[in-house]
Nucleic acid binder design. Structure first.
Length: 158
DNA sequence: GCCAACGTTGGC
DNA sequence: GCCAACGTTGGC
């Protein structure tokens, strides 16, 4: 099992939105970066754990844990002309972008804010914390995951 | 609102 | 293939 971090702007899709979604599950459409896509397409497996991160939030924070319940499949939003994720280069015959489905697992309560993350020993090399890092889907090492789970005392089964 | 960092586009 | 211009991300 691998570990990931996925960013979402809460004004677009929030942690609460996930909790209130049918089956507490959502498709993760709209990834339009090749590196992020390749992680989803090539490496994400059923049961992988995901840190759900609020970007462009006050404060930015890790809100909870989700799990991958469906592996990569074509992102059909890319060929919806009225979607903000429309990409004319993609088509049903030749999809470019993929999405996965994730399901709510448990809260991280309280959320771990970005300033707090920067102070936690063992997370110095987290991709999220690197200067200029913008990857919206990124791997988290088992060691980083363990540190974060240690810091939050929230637990829950998926 | 600002702006640094990054990714993409397109002319050459 | 180079690289300048541009658009986006996302913290502050």
């Amino acid at each position: 099992m691998r570990y990931w971090l996925m960013k979402s702007e809460p004004t677009v899709f929030s942690w609460d939105d996930l909790k209130q979604a049918p089956n507490q599950t959502t498709c993760w459409e709209g990834v339009r970066n090749y590196q992020a896509r390749n992680f989803m397409r090539d490496q994400m497996a059923l049961g992988d754990r995901v840190l759900f991160y609020h970007s462009n939030a006050k404060p930015p924070a890790i809100m909870g844990v989700a799990e991958v319940v469906k592996t990569a499949y074509p992102d059909s939003f890319a060929w919806e002309p009225h979607s903000k994720y429309f990409d004319p280069k993609s088509s049903p015959e030749h999809p470019i972008w993929v999405m996965v489905d994730i399901r709510y697992c448990h809260d991280i309560d309280p959320p771990i804010t970005l300033p707090q993350l920067r102070q936690i020993a063992g997370l110095e090399n987290m991709i999220l914390l690197r200067k200029g890092s913008r990857l919206s889907v990124q791997p988290v090492t088992p060691e980083e995951w363990a540190v974060i789970m240690e810091v939050t005392h929230s637990q829950g089964s998926c």
